[in-house]
């Protein structure tokens, strides 16, 4: 995740110190991706080294305040006008798990799918409940929730799709069909 760009974007609104930045980040994203304050300060140090922010002294209570530079503003503008990269698909544990489940012998793939579907559905119920509670609240947080809802929904749709394809494969798999025909023929033979 781009902590760097997110902090820079927050600094566009005015000089801030580390704790303030963390609080504002979490407020806008509903604490969905918690930041620890150490991470915030290391990032600020790196931003300062790169000339994107400058230390602006300490406030009355001794907090070190940072201010965005012109280069920093350019970096924020570039971030907002560039799409998030998709060159490499993010590692998806579920897709990897299913790809292996269908090939490794002895795995009940149907059970793997259903177990995941239930878990994802529970998460989707939770997000929906949070959405209801957040109604009329901050737009930024509600958009983050929508993103979680859409991702969970897509995952369930994909699982449904996997299940349907597996079923079809089981019906169409020639060796199974051959087995069935042979068994049927044997049954008929026995009846005669």
């Amino acid at each position: 995740m781009s902590v760097k760009q997110a902090l820079l974007a927050l600094l566009e609104e005015g000089p801030r110190y580390g704790y303030q930045l963390r609080a504002q980040f979490e407020q806008r994203t509903g604490s969905t991706w918690p930041l620890n304050v150490g991470q915030v300060y290391t990032t600020l140090t790196r931003l300062e080294r790169d000339g994107l922010v400058v230390g602006a002294g300490a406030d009355d209570e001794g907090h070190v305040v940072y201010r965005i530079t012109d280069d920093g503003r350019d970096a924020v503008a570039a971030w907002f006008t560039t799409p998030v990269e998709r060159t490499q698909p993010p590692r998806d544990e579920l897709a990897i798990k299913l790809a292996l489940a269908v090939t490794v012998p002895g795995v009940d793939v149907g059970a793997v799918i259903q177990q995941q579907r239930s878990a994802t559905m529970s998460a989707l119920q939770d997000y929906t409940r949070l959405k209801r509670q957040a109604e009329g609240g901050e737009l930024s947080w509600s958009l983050v929730l929508d993103s979680l809802v859409f991702a969970a929904e897509a995952e369930i749709r994909w699982l449904d799709h996997c299940e349907a394809r597996l079923r079809r494969a089981q019906i169409e798999r020639p060796e199974t069909l051959l087995d069935e025909i042979l068994t049927e023929e044997a049954d008929e033979e026995a009846r005669r």
């Binding site: 239930s118 989707l124 809802v149």
Partner: peptide
């Protein structure tokens, strides 16, 4: 799924 998520329980 998005609609089922409004429920307290989901039965498959």
């Amino acid at each position: 799924a998005r609609h089922a998520a409004w429920a307290d329980r989901v039965v498959f």
